[in-house]
Nucleic acid binder design. Structure first.
Lengths: 264, 264
DNA sequence: GGCAGAAGTTCCATTATGTGGAACCGAATT
DNA sequence: AATTCGGTTCCACATAATGGAACTTCTGCC
């Protein structure tokens, strides 16, 4: 595995499971239930094979099929994830600190983890909003345009950083979205200050300040952030909050070391 | 497949996937990260086999392994579930009605679906409390001691009802928890009134009233409920709310029929 | 420090499982 | 009645999973 050029060598090394996961991804990523033919057309597998594979996934509850033969994600996924979330050590350690940060700032606080080239949100604490919106938890967002993502990148060694950036397709979400070059340039600043800003780079009108969280061996990299509407979160305000955010990150890391965190 | 006695015939019919799911379940159900040996001791597979299987699951992100070689559920599960939840048709249809019911009662409203002998909570709307998403969502509870569960059972044909009850191991959570016989006896009442009560049967001090929701072909069975502390939810209060709960269920069903629901 | 035992990893001949082309079915469509 | 389309079933074949055993790496423990 320590062959310098690890380019795209890792394609499909999980045998049967890999093929099934491709299907699962296909169905969960679709914005509507898919018919057998739709999936067949995706070209992954021949008819007979596909039919059996889908059958197995349905049997296990990972997919569901309705009367019209349309496939959607199954409840089993929720069940598995629920447990996975409830018992996640990192999240449990972070929870009280996130709450404290929310109280202090009054804005929404996020906890995220780097996974491949995406940030997965592990937790979210909002104020008293009566209206609950899209939960966000479990949601995967691109690294390069989220505070947590940029913060996480900043602690990676150059080698891993470059490898990761190389495999990302940069998409322009707002006029402020970073390109690969801009992102790399920004790393220096983030490394020295220990805080990353999202200046409406993912969504117009949304700003955020984030700090990285990482395990010693970098097997684990993530971050914590405060997010809010630009009209409330002026840049001065964001700067003010950089410090509490960094402190929160520091406390979580200290909890990980002393606690049950991913240690060696 | 149409062999009248479909008893326990369905064991392990999903080949390789089935074996992997057993492992996934094992790890997600454990209350701590498991070592290789722990899983080996569960006796499912011989060493070599198990090693490769775990490797594949880790590779796909369904499991994670820390520096100490301890396995826990992976982030990929959250990612998959998040999408599955966000786009769930049934949940989307129900959402506004759940909110309305919450407003009306001021108590916590749940939306659940029957899956095997468990109720999986699909959504939860609480009052002003900072919403902890996933606190309950995806959670699997026994059918026989939750309002939603009992409501759901009441719309099943006797045959399916009996089969289901036969395979459940009844556990006594509180002095009020129903036995199989009591549950069956109660069905008559629930069927005629269209409402099911949980009179502190799952947790002491918690009551709830629920109404069933089902698709015509019964491919889908669930329910909606209002839950709260016994001191606020007196039995008279619960009776008062039976009607709005039934109405909410009716509205959701009507939404399913006209909307994109699981129709034929 | 070195030894013993346990925990974890790798190997590879065997075989069970998944594969996929082709035939089949049934319900819409013309 | 004939045709197409979406879905399901079948079965000889190839591939991927299996699992026993050998090997390596970690842990104390003396």
């Amino acid at each position: 595995m320590i062959d310098g050029s690890n380019e795209m060598t890792q394609q499909r090394e999980t045998g049967t499971l890999g093929k099934l996961m491709v299907l699962l991804d296909l169905v969960t990523h679709a914005d509507r239930p898919l018919r057998f033919t739709d999936i067949l057309a995706a070209g992954e597998q021949p008819r007979g094979t596909l039919h059996r594979q889908l059958g197995h996934l349905v049997e296990e509850g990972l997919l569901e099929i309705d009367g019209d033969g349309r496939y959607s994600p199954g409840l089993r996924l929720l069940e598995l994830a629920s447990r996975s979330w409830a018992r996640n050590e990192f999240r449990l350690i972070a929870e009280p600190h996130l709450n404290a940060l929310q109280q202090l700032t009054g804005e929404t606080v996020h906890l995220g983890v780097l996974r491949g080239a995406s940030v997965i949100y592990l937790d979210k604490v909002e104020g008293r909003q009566p209206v609950r919106m899209y939960s966000q938890i479990g949601n995967a967002s691109p690294v390069y345009c989220t505070g947590v993502g940029k913060a996480a990148l900043s602690v990676l060694p150059d080698e891993r950083l470059n490898a990761l950036i190389a495999e990302v397709a940069f998409q322009r979400f707002t006029p402020n979205t970073r390109t690969a070059e801009m992102l790399l340039a920004e790393m220096e600043e983030i490394r020295s200050t220990g805080a990353a800003f999202d200046r409406e780079e993912h969504e117009v009108g949304i700003r955020c300040v984030a700090a990285p969280i990482w395990s010693e061996d970098l097997s684990f990299v993530g971050g914590v952030s405060v997010t809010g509407p630009a009209y409330r979160l002026t840049m001065e305000r964001l700067n003010e909050w950089a410090d509490p955010v960094r402190q929160t990150a520091a406390r979580i890391m200290s909890g990980m070391r002393s606690g049950l965190g991913p240690r060696r």
